[in-house]
Nucleic acid binder design. Structure first.
Lengths: 144, 144
DNA sequence: ATTTAATTTGCAACATTGTTGCAAATTTAT
DNA sequence: ATAAATTTGCAACAATGTTGCAAATTAAAT
């Protein structure tokens, strides 16, 4: 993972690569993503960081990160929107974050399974598939 | 599909089978589900039915239908919650609504693909899968 | 068919979540 | 160091979801 210093530097590069100003809020939000080993939703930022930044700023920051391909959304069956950081190969125009997601029913954590194959889906005649989203729920490694 | 009379009768049976009172609101909401050939979200009911019933009643009715296994939720990457009617074999305790979902990027419609196989996912060691949700997006039959 | 009991509905009030405009503060470029 | 551009926080608002309770509707019992 590296020292705090190193992490901050890595986040700085990530932001500069995406042509974004390196601000305190953006750095802190990315730090929270890196610390948590799972997906985060909006309300988590308030819980994790208290009132250190404004709700509006969080919304705007997450939207910016989405636009730049730094994070991606994970489908849910409730009203919450969950986000996770993309792998380094992702960019604004080219996403390599095709992977399945796993939600643990015990700890509630959602993680990206990068090394698990995305299945081939054999659709009925006449349908064209552009994207396949898979969310598996069950019990994760650590909760077992 | 049958006459309006027949549909109303079928909905009545469905509700009675689930041990629910047959009310105007419930009947009308189920009618809307049957008419639409796709998933519906909360706001659709206000659009489709105007102010014929209260927002609160719609929320409560959808929750009741979920509890009884009459409808199920479909995962999305936004804050909306989409619902679709379950097949007849579903009940409060035993759900057979395991199927994948397809969202058309053209018409925005989400449908259940009942005859498409749910893929086997080979998870990393230590993970146990209880449920697999698949949402495919692309272009549907009619929009092609 | 009436009456009674149980359930459902609609209203009001509130809580949570997400959005927009704009001035102040911060960051980047000169 | 200064100017330009961007980002942030505040206020105000809009949309979405929840709860308690009285009135209305539905189901059950006579």
């Amino acid at each position: 993972m590296g020292t705090k210093q190193q992490i901050t530097e890595r986040i700085g590069s990530l932001l500069r690569d995406s042509k974004l100003s390196v601000t305190e809020t953006r750095t802190k939000i990315l730090e929270l993503f890196m610390k948590s080993n799972g997906a985060l939703e909006h309300s988590d930022f308030e819980k994790l960081a208290g009132k250190s930044f404004d709700r509006v700023t969080v919304y705007r920051t997450l939207q910016t990160f989405l636009d730049k391909g730094i994070i991606h959304k994970i489908p849910t069956t409730d009203t919450s929107v969950r986000y996770a950081v993309c792998k380094s190969e992702c960019s604004e125009h080219h996403h390599h974050d095709h992977h399945i997601h796993f939600k643990c029913e015990e700890c509630g954590n959602t993680i990206c399974l990068d090394d698990t194959d995305i299945p081939q889906i054999h659709l009925p005649k006449g349908y064209a598939a552009h994207n396949v989203e898979v969310v598996v729920s069950g019990v994760c490694k650590t909760c077992k």
